[in-house]
Simulated scan of single mutants.
Amino acid sequence: MPLTADAADTETDVADLVTLARAGDRQAFVSLVSTHYDFVYRTAYRWCGNRSDAEDVAQEVSIKLAAAIAAFDGRSKFSSWLYRITLNAVRDMQRARARRGRHVTALAEVSPQSAPPEQEDAAATRQLWAAVRALPDKQRDAVLLVYAEDLTHAAAAEIMGCREATVSWHIFEARKTLRGFL
């Protein structure tokens, strides 16, 4: 019997799904992917900045998850492990684009004279997140995990595979860099 999205949110239910999926239960794997697809898409969107790339990454992660689920050893939370797979998929896509010489930057230009204040705020927010996406990988990841995903420095450190102090340092460096951009 498939779990509902609400029931699958608990760590115990996710752990049960992972165990069943690792053992080859296709229905458990489908439930695991469908439960976490929006999470993967949302995470990819924050890193990529556009829907098309986020959809490509989410689909890629779903495919990679089929092969990688057997390697999940349970030492970290499934969501932390899934973050890593998603971030690696985003980086792979970005590296492939860079090799092909394509750079995707989408900033809507809004004229301050004619735009209402809420559009100016939206444009400033888009500009800020575009600047965050331009940061070096580790700084970008730390900022997005802590500020966009609202994770603690400790949780971000677990996902990034480093110490909590290192996350704090990356955020400090990112702030210095962003001051120069903005």
Results as ranks from 00 to 15, higher is better:
1 M>R: 10
1 M>A: 11
100 R>P: 03
145 L>P: 03
156 A>Q: 09
171 I>D: 00
39 F>W: 14
169 W>F: 06
160 M>W: 02
58 A>W: 00
22 R>T: 04
4 T>C: 14
127 Q>F: 14
117 P>Q: 12
154 A>T: 03
118 E>W: 10
51 R>P: 06
44 A>T: 01
27 Q>I: 11
79 S>M: 02
90 V>C: 09
76 S>L: 15
140 R>M: 06
43 T>Y: 08
176 K>G: 01
76 S>G: 07
165 A>H: 07
36 H>M: 11
120 E>T: 08
48 C>V: 02
178 L>Y: 09
94 Q>L: 15
176 K>F: 01
34 S>P: 05
77 K>C: 08
41 Y>K: 05
87 L>P: 00
142 A>C: 09
53 D>R: 03
34 S>D: 15
161 G>W: 00
62 S>W: 05
159 I>C: 01
93 M>S: 09
91 R>M: 10
7 A>I: 10
146 V>C: 10
181 F>I: 10
42 R>M: 00
54 A>M: 04
49 G>L: 05
113 Q>T: 11
166 T>F: 14
107 L>C: 10
131 A>D: 13
5 A>N: 15
112 P>L: 11
169 W>L: 11
4 T>Y: 02
130 A>D: 04
140 R>C: 15
100 R>Y: 04
16 D>F: 00
120 E>L: 14
163 R>P: 00
133 R>G: 07
171 I>P: 01
115 A>G: 12
22 R>M: 09
122 A>I: 03
108 A>V: 06
172 F>S: 07
151 L>Q: 06
80 S>N: 03
38 D>H: 08
10 T>F: 04
28 A>E: 13
59 Q>E: 15
56 D>L: 04
136 P>G: 10
164 E>H: 12
83 Y>H: 08
134 A>T: 05
14 V>N: 00
83 Y>T: 02
78 F>C: 06
177 T>F: 06
59 Q>T: 03
83 Y>F: 12
35 T>L: 03
106 A>T: 09
139 Q>L: 13
82 L>T: 08
153 H>W: 14
114 S>W: 08
178 L>V: 13
121 D>I: 05
56 D>H: 04
135 L>T: 04
1 M>C: 09
174 A>W: 07
118 E>G: 00
117 P>L: 01
97 R>I: 02
112 P>M: 05
30 V>K: 10
